[in-house]
Design a protein around this nucleic acid. Structure first.
Length: 424
RNA sequence: GGAGAAGUAGUCUAAUUGGCUAAGGCGUCGGUCUUGAAAACCGAUGGGGUUAAUAGCCCCAUGUGGGUUCGAGUCCCACCUUCUCCGCCA
């Protein structure tokens, strides 16, 4: 959520930002109009409230003095004022709701140096690490290897739960579990994160804070009787943990790594990534979240990204880092780096992590503050990044580490977890 | 699920049968004093509107939402959370 005071004085800047994000500017115009109306009514409401307060105080005084006639008059006056304010109070309440509804739909303002572009083809590459392996045989896609080794069961997955659900079995299940443990170990032991196992269902307010609601409700699963939402990422929980809190400067930055399944309806992605387990309704992910101070959030994003990259370096998987252009940025992000891993089946780099600085956007929605060194209350900045998406990491290992005789070599760092050198 | 108790500001705690500015302690920040510091004393401490303004003035904020009333921390209703006890359960 943007600061309304900022919106009032930067309308054109926000308009440009919305255009470059491929967002409608209609909502901005509505917001500005509603804000003006709201403040106009607010002024009137406050004036009457002031009169009511004065009147009530007079009642108490007159009662003490025992002036019956004046007392009666004042009580009558109070009733009259109530009648006058009733209509205005209702109007104000409605305007407040309408105004907030607009404000919650405005995306964040991106960094000044953000590359402008309408889609992902405008995302510049920042760096490229490792070289894709040259195969001396025809490499197979992971869905073939997974089926042949009886590790990925697509048919039974859809029998259980419908499309985009897959059962992992045997060493594939173990690899999934090993990767999660390996990533959590790395981030908690080497990178200084606090390990978190969050709830998988959260309240509407929680997920509104991170920005998925109200605008993207159709992308979420929710429960029928309780209005709880299945988390699409543990970011929701790791950010939401500090909702309505005031953090101490000495505790910042607060760094959390969370391990959870992510549940996504993938509305609007029909026909995309239909083969294999690249795009599922449920996948495991290790997520990194920082609550930090505004002055250092830009540097912290670089650090967080390097932590995600470290996983790929240790697994010796080739990858590249790209910067998201204006049109490809997420709703709350001011700056995002995507990490893409090399997938032989795609003959391309495929997203495996997205690291973003959301500035004070989420903190404002979730009311997450800290006291700065001058004792002033300020909103924290929140950062989030996958470290990494486990299913896609599994895919990358299966495809990049396959052997000519149909096996998968286990990356060295995973051998202690897998307790074997080959799958298959 | 049942019974009972509680929820006040950054934090801890008060507030008569509804009434005048939600009192006070602690913490933190600023100031006075000091060579410096501590202590002491003074002031400040959340959100919003108005404004050139961190000046004034005003509104809101006692878990949340309603209700009664000229007026609600206080009375009434519903809900949420926490604690205690009972029941059920991996």
């Amino acid at each position: 959520m943007l600061d309304m005071k900022f919106v009032r004085t930067n309308i054109e800047k926000i308009r440009h930002c919305l255009i470059n994000r491929n967002s409608s500017t209609l909502i901005l115009d509505e917001l500005v109009t509603l804000d003006e109306k709201r403040r106009d009514i607010l002024k009137k409401v406050e004036d009457i409230r002031s009169l009511k307060n004065t009147n009530s105080k007079a009642v108490a005084r007159l009662k003490a003095q025992g002036d019956e006639e004046a007392l009666r008059q004042n009580i009558e006056n109070g009733k009259l004022l109530n009648q006058q304010s009733e209509e205005l109070e209702i109007q104000l309440k409605q305007l407040d709701e309408q105004y907030m509804q607009r404000l919650l739909y405005i995306p964040n303002i991106y960094d000044e140096d953000t590359p402008i572009g309408k889609d992902e083809t405008f995302n510049p590459e920042i760096r490229r690490i490792g070289v894709p392996r040259k195969f001396d045989f025809e490499p197979k896609p992971h869905w073939e290897i997974g089926s042949e080794l009886n590790g990925l069961d697509f048919d039974r997955g859809s029998k259980l739960s419908g499309s985009r659900f897959t059962i992992m079995k045997g060493d594939f299940a173990r690899l999934e579990r090993s990767l999660g443990a390996f990533m959590m170990d790395l981030h908690s032991s080497e990178h200084g994160y606090t390990e978190v196992m969050p709830p998988h269902m959260v309240l509407r307010e929680t997920i509104t804070a991170t920005g998925q609601l109200p605008k993207f409700e159709e992308d979420l699963y929710n429960t029928k009787g309780d209005d709880l939402f299945l988390i699409p990422t543990s970011e929701v929980a790791l950010v939401g943990m500090h909702r309505d809190e005031i953090l101490e400067l000495k505790d910042l930055p607060a760094k959390y790594c969370g391990y959870s399944p992510c549940y996504r309806r993938e509305a609007g992605s029909y026909g995309k990534d239909v083969r294999g387990v690249i795009r599922q309704h449920q996948f495991d992910k290790v997520e990194l979240v920082w609550h930090t101070i505004p002055e250092r959030s830009a540097d912290d994003l670089e650090t967080l990204t390097s932590h995600a990259e470290k996983v790929l370096k240790l697994l010796e998987l080739p990858y590249r880092v790209i910067r998201l252009c204006s049109g490809d940025l997420g709703f709350g992000a001011i700056r995002t780096y995507d990490i893409e891993v090399w997938l032989p089946s795609y003959n391309a780099y495929k997203e495996i992590s997205s690291c973003s600085n959301d500035g004070d956007f989420q903190a404002r929605r979730g009311n997450i503050r800290f006291r700065d060194k001058d004792n002033k209350l300020k909103y924290v900045h929140t950062l989030n990044g996958s470290g990494l998406a486990i299913g896609r990491t599994l895919v990358a290992i299966v495809e990049n580490y396959q052997t000519s005789d149909g096996k998968i070599k286990v990356p060295d760092v995973l051998i202690p977890y897998m307790k074997k050198e080959y799958i298959g």
